[in-house]
Design a protein around this nucleic acid. Structure first.
Ligand SMILES: [Mn+2]
Ligand SMILES: [Mn+2]
Ligand SMILES: [Mn+2]
Ligand SMILES: [Mn+2]
Lengths: 219, 219
DNA sequence: GAAAAAATTTAGATTTGTCTAAAAATATTT
DNA sequence: AAATATTTTTAGACAAATCTAAATTTTTTC
């Protein structure tokens, strides 16, 4: 069976929302996909008949095993293309997501496998998110929210919590990117801001919001 | 203004048919695009209102300057992706066209330019067809149909007249590919077959049909 | 230059994915 | 537990791209 780009976008959105919530509501989907709730309801009925998810009126939705498999395939393509755009074509962090949003729908299975091989079977995309392998398995990275990093422990930036261009703009300005080594020097309880020091630079202060959007792993 | 994948496929098909004919008929388009003539008529009316072509009932169709510009952009993307698939990802000759048929619709302008730079600004795709540059200009290669190559003149394969998998299968079997150096040793008027010799191999005979599907340039 | 054949267009219907407005179900307050 | 608010679904409509069947125009044949 094959699926339209629209159907694929729904399945991927449900997959991501499910990570947080378990079951996914019509309104959440409508917000993420920028469509009206009525349209979401129609599509859910359709995807149910295609056995990609379980759905009962007013009860929310969950992917079936088949739906999950499909979602993982799309996420795999999305993240592999992001890796390609960032590492091979030198795109910026903030530019890759939007383009991958289209590339993820290219259907050739063989293309995905060849691209994966060409890139050297990368395990994480430019935002630090894991890339599912051809069986849908992904490495779970034990990463820590920067806000929880103990003082004076050296750590390395390994992920971001959002791909908004606003966040990525700030990170560029602050000179923080994937792999940046840093430690927390001090915590200010007034506004929960943090003083951090990037290896080899002067310390500076970042907001609570920024710290919550960054993930690190100890080194 | 932006265009749907369907609209882009129509514009590209008209562009290719125009190369041969000048003006393009509804039936020709319907054959190439595998749709009914009635559907083609509907789309032509629509593309006319978008100023991509000139069209009058029963008179056939021609791209406008704007339509031509769009077509060249799509052809550029198609052939760059084919080059990428063939040279970077090691796909076979016969596999790249179908995949490029999808990739050509990815919208990012910056992606095309970065891809072009990464590939080293190639001028010909894996089938020997010229790749338009970012201004829509393409190198016209002075190539010769193999059927017209004089006897005992060394030449190099530079293009194929079709991308059917049947042709490409035969070429693979016969060990002929882009850049193969060969000469015509003899011509048989009975069936217009040719005896050719690939540099460093024993001579063998190819059919008229095959010779007509191959383009060469003198070396 | 009619008549017949072929090409093309029109009319009306269908599928997909969307929308608005209104109704129904569920959740939250008081 | 009623009243109110929120969420979700239904009903009916619409644009895009397609189709079939019938009508029209152009081209070819006699
Ligand atoms: Mn997408
Ligand atoms: Mn990502
Ligand atoms: Mn295409
Ligand atoms: Mn080609």
């Amino acid at each position: 069976m094959s699926f339209s780009i629209t159907e694929e976008n729904y399945i991927k959105a449900i997959f991501h929302l499910q990570q947080e919530d378990g079951t996914v509501s019509t309104n959440d989907l409508s917000a993420v996909l920028q469509t009206k709730p009525a349209s979401v309801t129609d599509m859910l009925k359709k995807l149910k008949t295609k056995k990609l998810l379980s759905y009962e009126r007013y009860k929310g939705v969950r992917l079936s095993a088949e739906g999950r498999r499909l979602a993982l395939g799309i996420v795999r393509k999305h993240r592999l293309w992001e890796y390609f755009l960032f590492n091979t074509l030198q795109f910026g962090w903030d530019e890759v997501h939007e383009i991958a949003e289209e590339l993820e729908h290219v259907t050739s299975k063989k293309l995905v496998e060849k691209l994966d091989a060409f890139l050297g079977y990368p395990r994480f995309d430019p935002h630090g998110d894991p890339i599912p392998d051809s069986h849908g398995k992904m490495t779970v990275r034990q990463q820590l929210n920067l806000i929880d990093l103990p003082v004076n422990k050296m750590a390395e930036v390994s992920g971001v919590g959002s791909q908004s261009s606003e966040l990525l703009e700030l990170l560029k300005h602050r000179n923080i990117s994937m792999g940046t080594k840093l430690e927390v020097k001090r915590r200010f309880s007034f506004d929960h801001s943090l003083e951090i020091r990037i290896k080899g630079q002067q310390p500076f202060i970042i907001s609570q919001q920024l710290a919550q959007a960054l993930f690190v792993k100890l080194v």
